[in-house]
Amino acid sequence: MLTGEKDCIIEDGEVYELVYEKPLTTLTGTRMHYCPGCGHSTAHKVLAEVIEELGIQEQTIGVAPVGCSVFAYDYLNIDMQEAAHGRATAVATGIKRVLPDKYVFTYQGDGDLAAIGTAETIHSINRGENIMIIFINNAVYGMTSGQMAPTTLVGMKSTTSPYGRDADFAGMPIKVSELIAPLKGAFYVTRHSVHTPGNVRKLKKAITNGFKYQQLKKGVTFIEVISNCPSNWKMTPVKSNEFIEKEMLPYYPLGDIKLPSKEDLAGLK
């Protein structure tokens, strides 16, 4: 390996150029505590990539939830606040209202955002807070080790639905993106996943837009990420990704749920 030329390797007369590396300035480098193959890690990485590429590290403030991603601030090298369970969007509201020119986002799981924090979620979106909400939906309470979430699929087993979720007993899994999209305060609502390279690329684009649209001050950008939970789904990471494809996506279809119009986006840098 030739040193002195950081982003190149010269070998056998060929010059190899660096084309991918995890973000070095916006990730702290601390090894993430997530289980092998966990989508949280990938989502963190993509988020950090976007912040690095947009060059907005100095203007970005994140809010971590309670849940598996409670330690997000250990990994993201930006100013962050740790919110009480479910209150991330209220905390983000507080930040954004007093620092309106900063980029503010929350990173929340399904239990945090769609169960205990439903009121805060709905109302911060309804007020059109100019924040980005990243909603990791893995259909289970991960941190407390596998209880039924509001998003757990019908028939899906968890420690508190050991015979599979019974819709008559526990209700249907909640589709948050579809629920909040009709609110005027929701500016951009989209659903992605991190289980294949193509989907990671799309998520990156969505998060980039999620940040950029904050400049317009026209409301919440809401990015749902369908993720896996190999440990609590009791599957290998590869099997859990197959489960996403086969079971999760038919119920939570990927794609844009609400897009801003061209007029809405006028003036965007």
């Binding site: 403030i61 809010v63 606040q81 919110a83 009480a84 209150r87 209220a90 905390v91 983000a92 509201t93 507080g94 930040i95 209202r97 007093v98 620092l99 009121a119 805060e120 709905i122 109302h123």
Partner: peptide
């Protein structure tokens, strides 16, 4: 800035965010 929250739960957490800022 005066903001009417959806509950006291929300307002105290807004205080948390803004004080933290």
């Amino acid at each position: 800035i005066p903001l009417q929250a959806e509950s006291e739960v929300a307002s105290i957490n807004m205080v948390y965010g803004a004080a933290g800022a």
